[in-house]
Design a protein around this nucleic acid. Structure first.
Lengths: 225, 225
DNA sequence: TTTTGAGATATTATCGATATTATGCGATGG
DNA sequence: CCATCGCATAATATCGATAATATCTCAAAA
């Protein structure tokens, strides 16, 4: 009877974790707008949970640069700016280049298969806009995942989220319908599987910069706010 | 024995902020050992505050990689390992190199003066082991401080703390009495003020690697645990 | 019209208590 | 004698309430 409880193991962990995930998602997809005040009580109602998990989740998101804590005046969703976006893009290119090379340097068959699998799932899920972003991130992280650098990977993951937030703010799917990203993804995967670090990195960075420059343009025009 | 904060009025009145600062310090200087269970109630007594600020501070420290949160079993001080240290050292070299070059590229007289000032204060404070580390970090951050990259600087600051923790665990002052670091600091400052990015970066990284290799050796021998 | 300040309101930060969950120990059955 | 189960204990995660703090309103004075 002890271990046979039907739900506890499968049921998601703590309320804090759930709240953290949900809040992060709300901010990343732009449902909580940049600069918006995040009132504890409002969120408490909206997510149907207590104040403690909310506060803890907001604290964690502060460290992810998705939320800003203001003196003693509570929290707000992080502001956006062209400078901020450029910094994210630049750091991402540097850090992912590093991670990708290290990942390829440690290449194993297991890793290779994980990449192929993640890519397959991503292409499969391309239909539903909803789950796609999750799979897209999974693919990119799978590429880097063989780097034995947990801290570096954490940085990359954080930067990924910060970056994708701008894409959502610009309107979802906006950039992905304008060119054939599938082609780019396939190219990156191919180079990685071939253990060609230089080529893979070049393709990866180009992949980022194309989207990045486009978004930077929108930001400059004030079309994202 | 256990010296209370030399600067107890941690500027902000928030109990959370105070608790965060104090806990971080306790972990960095090794008073809370790597892997040690961090029981809420014990800390609550020790720091004389409520459970909420403790939890919030621990959450923040989790994001700094100084504390690990275990499923539903609370928190513990982050473990240490040779791999972890090597990763920190490597990342630090890469990121600080980047930040330093950007900082120098944006060089202004104000920044230059801030660096000189920070250096002066550090040499002045070299006597008291207590305040020195604070000033030492301030000097290093001042060098990087002109880079217009808040996220990058935040990463550098985090990595600095993670790194210095290993130095404390090896015994404070251990490495700083073995060679003339003042000389190294002066050299870095000189190159930075002269706007010579290549030279400054070379000296900075060498500064890190000398200490780093030494500590890596200790870790390998199992002399740090 | 603009500025200033007191009171009222809203919101946060913090505390104390409870319920949930893990852990350790001892008894029971193989 | 060893392994397993269940109970007692301890610790955590969460909630509800309170105290501290900021913000807003609006009237009065310059």
């Amino acid at each position: 009877m002890n271990q046979l409880d039907p739900r506890p193991p499968s049921r998601d962990g703590s309320a804090t974790q759930r709240t953290y995930d949900r809040l992060r998602n709300l901010i990343v997809v732009g449902e909580l707008r940049p600069g918006e005040k995040l009132k504890i009580d409002t969120l408490r109602q909206r997510l149907d949970t207590g104040a403690s998990p909310i506060r803890e989740a907001l604290s964690l998101l502060t460290s992810d640069n998705l939320v800003e804590r203001i003196d003693q005046r509570g929290f707000r969703a992080a502001e956006i700016s062209a400078d901020n976006f450029r910094e994210i893009l630049g750091l991402r290119c540097t850090l992912e280049d590093m991670a990708l090379r290290e990942s390829i340097a440690n290449a194993t068959e297991t890793w290779e298969e994980a990449c192929v699998l993640a890519h397959h799932r991503m292409t499969r899920g391309a239909g539903s806009t909803e789950g796609f972003e999750e799979l897209h991130k999974a693919f990119h992280m799978a590429l880097l995942g063989n780097a034995r650098s947990p801290i570096l990977l954490k940085f990359c993951s954080q930067l990924y989220d910060l970056n994708i937030r701008y894409r959502f703010l610009a309107g979802r799917g906006l950039d992905y319908t304008r060119r054939d990203v599938s082609e780019e993804h396939a190219g990156i995967l191919e180079a990685a599987v071939a253990r060609d670090a230089d080529l893979a990195s070049e393709r990866l960075l180009s992949h980022y910069r194309i989207t990045g420059d486009y978004l930077a343009g929108l930001l400059g025009d004030g079309q994202i706010a």
